[in-house]
């Protein structure tokens, strides 16, 4: 390793953290409300859904793929959860997650068996699953009301020692994902596949199976996000979660994971998630900007970071 690589590594690894700390400092000086514990808890609660998806998206992007269908999967899970919320609680929780995993598996089949490029396969799935969410919703695509008394809708209101449950679920999932990415054969395979797929095949890795697993994990976590969404708004929303794929991709990339695959850290996705969460929080606290600006700023930030990555890393291998 030469020194030059070390500096790029330093920027890659510490850039997101520095950005996050600077943003926290600025926001804390600007808005006194920002500093309260309630606001911090609220930020974690808000980012928990897109955060869960970002975890799955990190695996997908590390493997060299992309998943655009996550928002639609969350919508499908949300509608299913609302439909089942009146019955047995266990089903209302399990079935939406299984639905997410199934759609993820369908993505995996299209990508590994049919050899359709990931962005096209998951784009089709993004639109197809959105249609599915509408079909399962009430007449005319109206939201499905959830049973307000069910314990499902209590998840997002309850807290454990002052920490909201969605935040706990997100952080737990993140910790597990960090361990999986770092210490399990599956996690290492994902890096190997993303780094060089042909080499991974020659090393004897089962590329198809690992990729299937990656998309299933991503789908499953999107299902959990849909579940939390239903719990939060007390209804199954077929139109909700549109644009979450952008937020998730942005969080992963801002966290320093390369879109070309194989390079990045699961733990740094947390920085990306929090940076976007704070931007959203600050825009809300400021109160004068439309919510349109959140998408606009997220998008511009994503492009800026990708640009920075391609420039700094000098990776001309990014194929346009």
């Amino acid at each position: 390793m030469t020194k030059k690589i070390d500096t790029t590594r330093l920027i890659r690894s510490q850039g997101p953290l520095v950005t996050l700390l600077v943003m926290c400092a600025v926001a804390a000086c600007w808005f006194p409300e920002f500093r309260t514990y309630d606001n911090m808890a609220n930020i974690f609660k808000q980012v928990s859904m897109t955060g869960l998806i970002s975890i799955g998206m990190t695996f997908v992007i590390l493997s060299g793929g992309i998943d655009l269908s996550v928002g639609s999967i969350a919508a499908v899970a949300s509608v299913i959860a609302a439909r089942l919320s009146g019955g047995v609680g266990l089903f209302a929780v399990l079935v939406p997650i299984i639905a997410g995993i199934t759609i993820g598996a369908a993505n995996g089949v299209l990508i590994t068996r049919a050899k359709i490029p990931p962005f096209i396969a998951t784009l089709s799935m993004m639109l197809g699953a959105r249609g599915l969410a509408f079909i399962m919703a009430d007449k005319g695509g109206a939201p499905v009301g959830a049973d307000k008394t069910a314990w499902l809708s209590q998840i997002s209101k309850a807290d454990l020692l002052g920490v909201p449950w969605p935040a706990i679920i997100f952080v737990l999932a993140l910790v597990v994902a960090i361990l999986v990415a770092r210490y399990t054969p599956f996690g290492r395979s994902v890096y190997a596949i993303g780094g060089n797929e042909e080499a991974a095949v020659m090393m004897g890795l089962n590329v198809s199976r690992n990729k299937m697993l990656v998309y299933m994990i991503c789908g499953g976590l999107a299902g959990v996000a849909g579940l939390l969404l239903t719990s939060r708004v007390n209804s199954g929303q077929p139109t909700a979660a549109a644009g979450w794929e952008l937020i998730a991709i942005a969080a992963v990339v801002i966290g320093g994971t390369a879109l070309t695959g194989g390079v990045g850290k699961m733990s740094h996705t947390l920085y990306g998630v929090l940076i976007l969460g704070i931007i959203r929080n600050v825009i809300n606290l400021y109160g004068k900007l439309d919510y349109w600006y959140i998408d606009l700023i997220t998008g511009i930030l994503l492009l800026a970071v990708v640009l920075l990555q391609t420039r700094i890393a000098g990776k001309q291998a990014v194929k346009p």
């Binding site: 991709i249 511009i300 640009l307 346009p320």
Partner: peptide
């Protein structure tokens, strides 16, 4: 072409941020 960002990422950003821009 110039900044070498994948087409799907660039156009996804324009797709989602673009409607906000249109509203503005």
């Amino acid at each position: 072409a110039k900044c070498k960002i994948q087409p799907i990422i660039v156009t996804l950003v324009v797709m989602i941020a673009g409607r906000g821009l249109a509203q503005i």
